[in-house]
Design a binder for these strands. Structure first.
Length: 758
DNA sequence: GGGGACGGCCTTTTT
DNA sequence: GGCCGTCCCC
């Protein structure tokens, strides 16, 4: 037997880590909490840690459970682990809380009274069901708003309060009465009942039912406790009570639980996230190890400073000092425009100029906003200037009507009692089954406590000849496809259903552009089902499995284009990402902070953390913008600049902290005093009004530069002007830099100084 | 039961 | 400005 000699050389995944990071990676045993500031290499640590476990044979892949919040984060992590350890990472239980526990529930749902092919209700399904319940008990939809009801139900569930506990709690009852929703708990009870009867779980159920499984079935929880030797939770500050309790239960045996998070980046309180979980963790695991990662590797000094200044306004926070040894970098820029339309045009121009001047790619840019509907103006402006872009979020492929329609057919094939799928497609395409009939079906189902499919099977008992026949045809349609489940794959059934349901025909007959696109979308969905079937070496290729997986796919996951393009998204969606240049737009009161969040201090602090997240996405340059007027409800309204701008250090009249850093910055470049003064003044005025003068900075009059001049550029250093190009009001210059070679720069934007030619 | 016209309402963020 | 729901008439 050869003696294994411990390698002296450090493992590759450890090199390039700082001492704290290394500690976080190699301290694998026992509970630990890593408080990781923005840009401190959190993902790197997490992936290195998992790689470390695998390489050191401390655990097999399927003994590791790693939970994230987005599919994107999960995919990236898997990718990076694979890069270090090679193949064999597929067995790691790595995914979002929802997707991992959905898989677990697929095996165990029967114990809970659900079919293993349970449907998953998305927000629309849930709302639709709630709406029916409200109608059914004769309440006013305007008082009992389905979206508000659902939010309240969700909130209760995430705090592990079921409908019965809720109804029995006088505090909640009082609250409801105060909110003029005295009969809320009645809706909650019915909602829960109907979901169960339909064999459907909503998003929250995926967690709540898992929780129930683990806490009520000891034998089962023991099995999983033994299995998961090492447990990781990413973005721990965003966990809610159920999630925390699930993780705690699973970690009970091995106790190797490692959570990574940053309280300053907690932005999901609205869906039940509780920063207190960080405190709970330290309390529940008194022998935990705490590691703080405070060095920011991502951003320039200016950006880190601004971020620290912002977060200091929050009272609730863990002590942490984020610092960086990166250069000062470009000053933070604030742009003001007259209107929201102008804002988007200006930023489109600005991006083009920056891209050219700093030789960047489109993918180095991101435009971030508070609300999805702000993307509209930017899409238009970018399209007009032929700037490629992609939007993350908004209406995703899987939220399109035609897609949801076909999926609803398939859901019904797999789960006959899925009432929301049924409601969606029973009369689309038209088959003469109207509201009267549908109501009749549902009220019989409710009265006799009989599931949907049973009622449908006895349609002739309570419906007249033609209608009963129509229902019978529908039942046959679904049933025929169900018979294929055993022998045929998901694609074959979907393809059959698209045709047999008449959906394809209906869309095909619509010769409008939209109709054509919808038709193509269906084809695209069929293609993706085919792919799912073809690449099923590591998953169950059944239709049921496909449907469940698809229900958890959100917009951001579908990246069709690899083309170089700028990214547009909400700040929420941007969490965990980084871009060289970030444009944070719509910095206005009532928009950001949102008017909905001005009510309480806690809410405002969450908005501020959101602002913190946005600012810390930027690596090199951050630009903020606000407009003086904006269209709201179809009307042009005057708006005020966001309070966050001031908190960041920006001042409209007497520029303070930021102006100071700008002064330092320009003095470094060794500009002559006159220029420095001028640029300082330009910034003291701050944002500039008229579009013509809206430029980043021009230390020299653009018209002064001539061929043959020797010039100095902030980044590229000294060079010689070879050529001037006039094109559509933009003056460009081709300059040969000593160190960087030939570059084409826009004179309106380039920070050029003419040097005396000697 | 279906389709068209009108009026009200809204806008937060996501798995 | 746009979506959704309701009302009214065929």
């Amino acid at each position: 037997m050869a003696i294994t000699i411990k390698p002296v050389i450090e493992a590759s995944y450890l090199s390039g880590l700082n001492e704290m990071q290394k500690k976080a990676v190699t301290h694998t045993e026992g509970p630990s909490i890593v408080v990781a500031g923005a840009g401190s290499g959190k993902t790197k640590v997490l992936t290195a840690r998992i790689a470390h476990l695998l390489k050191q044979n401390k655990a097999a892949a399927d003994e590791i459970l790693a939970l994230t919040f987005t599919n994107k984060a999960a995919a990236e992590m898997r990718d990076r682990i694979t890069q270090v350890v090679g193949n064999g990472t597929k067995a790691i239980w790595l995914g979002t809380f929802h997707s991992v526990f959905m898989k677990l529930l697929r095996y165990e749902a029967n114990s809970l009274g659900y079919p293993s092919n349970f449907s998953i209700y998305d927000t629309d399904d849930s709302k639709s069901l709630i709406k029916q319940i409200i109608k059914g008990i004769d309440l006013d939809e305007k008082v009992y708003k389905p979206s508000v009801i659902l939010a309240r139900i969700s909130h209760a569930k995430n705090r592990l309060i079921g409908p019965k506990e809720y109804a029995a709690d006088p505090t909640y009852q009082k609250e409801d009465a105060y909110m003029r929703m005295a009969r809320f708990s009645e809706i909650f009870i019915k909602y829960t009942h109907y979901c169960l009867q339909a064999g459907a779980m909503d998003f929250d159920d995926l967690l709540v039912q898992t929780h129930k499984l683990l806490y009520d079935y000891p034998a089962l929880s023991e099995k999983y406790q033994q299995q998961f030797r090492y447990i990781f939770i990413d973005e721990f500050q965003d966990t809610n009570l159920v999630q925390y309790r699930i993780a705690k239960k699973l970690a009970a045996y091995h106790q190797n639980i490692c959570v990574v998070g940053d309280d300053a980046q907690s932005i999901y309180a609205f869906r039940g996230a509780d920063i207190q979980n960080i405190l709970h963790f330290t309390h529940d695991y008194p022998d935990h190890q705490m590691i703080k990662l405070e060095q920011n590797y991502r951003s320039t000094q200016h950006i880190v400073d601004a971020a620290n200044r912002i977060i200091s306004y929050n009272e609730r926070q863990l002590k942490k000092k984020v610092w960086t040894s990166n250069p000062m970098g470009a000053p933070i820029q604030v742009l003001r425009t007259l209107s929201d339309m102008e804002e988007s045009r200006l930023i489109a121009d600005n991006i083009l100029a920056e891209k050219l001047n700093h030789q960047l790619l489109y993918r180095d840019f991101a435009i971030l906003y508070r609300t999805n509907n702000q993307s509209r103006n930017f899409e238009e402006a970018l399209r007009k200037k032929n700037i490629p872009y992609r939007i993350i979020g908004g209406l995703s492929f899987y939220q399109r009507k035609e897609i949801k329609d076909l999926l609803a057919y398939l859901r019904l094939v797999v789960n006959h009692n899925d009432t929301e799928a049924f409601r969606r497609i029973i009369n689309f395409p038209r088959r003469g089954i109207g509201t009267t009939t549908i109501n009749k079906i549902f009220s019989i189902s409710a009265e006799k406590m009989v599931p949907l499919w049973t009622v449908l099977g006895n349609a002739s008992d309570f419906l007249s000849g033609t209608t009963a026949a129509a229902v019978a045809r529908f039942v046959t349609l679904i049933h025929t496809a169900t018979l294929k489940l055993e022998k045929e794959n998901a694609y074959a059934i979907a393809d059959y259903m698209a045709k047999a349901s008449g959906l394809l025909k209906e869309l095909h007959e619509d010769k409008t552009v939209e109709g054509l696109t919808r038709y193509e979308h269906i084809q695209e969905l069929l293609n993706s089902i085919k792919q799912f079937v073809d690449h099923s070496d590591h998953h169950d290729p059944s239709l049921g499995s496909f449907l469940q997986e698809v229900s958890l796919i959100t917009s951001e996951d579908k990246e069709t284009t690899k083309e170089d393009s700028i990214t547009l998204m909400t700040i929420h969606a941007a969490k965990g990402l980084e871009f060289k240049c970030v444009y944070l737009v719509g910095m206005e009161e009532e928009l950001f902070p949102s008017s909905m969040m001005l009510g309480s201090k806690a809410d405002l602090e969450e908005e501020r953390r959101l602002f913190y997240v946005a600012v810390t996405r930027a690596q090199l340059k951050l630009t903020l913008s606000y407009a003086l007027s904006r269209y709201r409800f179809g009307k042009l309204a005057n708006v005020q600049p966001s309070r966050f701008l001031k908190e960041m250090g920006w001042d409209n009249t007497a520029t303070k902290a930021i102006a100071k850093s700008i002064a330092t910055d320009s003095s470094r470049t060794g500009k002559p005093m006159a220029t420095q003064k001028q640029s300082n003044k330009a910034r003291t005025i701050g944002p500039i009004l008229a579009p013509a003068t809206l430029r980043i900075r021009s230390s020299t009059d653009a018209t002064a530069i001539q061929v043959g001049h020797t010039v100095q550029h902030l980044h590229f250093g000294v060079g010689k002007v070879l050529q001037l190009v006039e094109s559509s009001a933009m003056r460009k210059a081709v300059i040969l830099f000593h160190k960087f070679g030939e570059k084409t720069l826009l004179l309106n934007y380039a920070k050029l100084e003419i040097l005396p030619s000697t």
